[in-house]
Design a protein around this nucleic acid. Structure first.
Lengths: 194, 194
DNA sequence: TACACTCTGAACCAATCGGTACAAAGTGAC
DNA sequence: GTCACTTTGTACCGATTGGTTCAGAGTGTA
């Protein structure tokens, strides 16, 4: 049963790839058409409001993925150390297999900054929040858990920048590994050390 | 003696501001003209090769600033701990007063990625290299110094993303402070602990 | 004053932009 | 096969893009 007709999810997937490679601004309609093989007609059929609609859909898909694969597991975990280790692994795989680009981070630059400010803020605030809560449940005091969580997410995001800049996946892999190690160490000493 | 005529340095300064706010892609000639008050004629007088030339000039200016204010002090310092503390302070001031945007990091996204790949790689490699060398001179073993340096620069870059996303300067300030504290702690224990 | 030189504004260009319209092709239910 | 509905390619629109040209204003020197 060959699928010849696209559905919206296919289009969103293809768009995410283009936006990761090209950026939102420079991913022009012609380029999108060419790289995805999706014609203008289909694009405006699935996304009547044009490029903004496409960006919104892609962001929503990424957000949904993180909700399922990252945030929910952290929330429901009873073993904090194991949950954090799982997060490190899942996040590493995700970004390495997706051009080493976080589309939400990309949205903090340029003009579209304001357009999606709410979604971007929610994504990072939720990530930090759910990680901090997991660390707290693991026995780390509230204030230290919050700092550790912010630092961990920042390290991952900074790792993506460095790994793209130096064009070396090992940079990102190393940063994620050491970030995980730092969180595990904090959980082991239950937030007592400095 | 009122300066009514611009020189190239004025133009570069103004362009840096526009690129930080708008990004390279969306900073169109008309927007640049409008926000800087510099006409097309002047722009193409100073930057005959157009937008690419402007980007190159802005990047070179940022690079020169870091050479002078960050890299050189680290290289010539005899007190590693003090030099690292100075770096933290200077870098924090720099980014807070410049829209919390690192133009080299912005260059790791989108199409222009390849255009300036060499300069971007050099900027980050030099920053990491000079910081690692400073830590090594401070008594930290080579392999650990390299990891610490990569992690520190990544933390700063990730901090910029988080601080823009959460629209809160305190996020960046906190991350820089804790990154500095981590480096100081490593220098104190001379790279012996884990 | 006159001169060489730097800087600037405005008009203009082809190419491309994001977006629209719509007829035709594809698809599943009956 | 027919029908309602979804998906698609093509042609097209006005606006804007990055880039060019060039006459002339601004400036320092003598």
């Amino acid at each position: 049963m060959p699928r010849t007709v696209l559905d919206r999810a296919d289009a969103v997937r293809a768009l995410a790839g283009v936006f990761r490679r090209r950026g939102f601004e420079s991913g022009s309609l012609s380029v999108i058409q060419q790289e995805t093989g999706i014609g203008r007609g289909s694009l405006y059929h699935f996304f009547p409001d044009g490029k903004a609609d496409m960006a919104r859909a892609v962001l929503a898909q990424v957000r949904a993925w993180f909700d399922e694969q990252v945030f929910a597991p952290l929330r429901t975990a009873d073993d904090a150390a194991q949950a954090v280790a799982a997060m490190s692994q899942v996040v590493e795989e995700y970004f390495v297999s997706r051009e080493r680009v976080c589309l939400f981070a990309a949205m903090t630059l340029g003009e579209e900054q304001e357009t999606f400010a709410r979604e971007v803020r929610a994504y990072f605030a939720d990530w930090v929040g759910v990680l901090a809560e997991t660390l707290r449940r693991g026995g780390i005091v509230e204030s230290e858990a919050a700092d550790l969580a912010v630092d961990a997410v920042a390290a991952i995001q900074g790792g993506l920048i460095m790994t793209r800049a130096l064009d070396d996946d090992a940079v990102f892999t190393g940063i994620v590994a050491r970030t995980d190690r730092r969180l595990q160490a904090a959980l082991t000493r239950k937030g007592m050390g400095s």
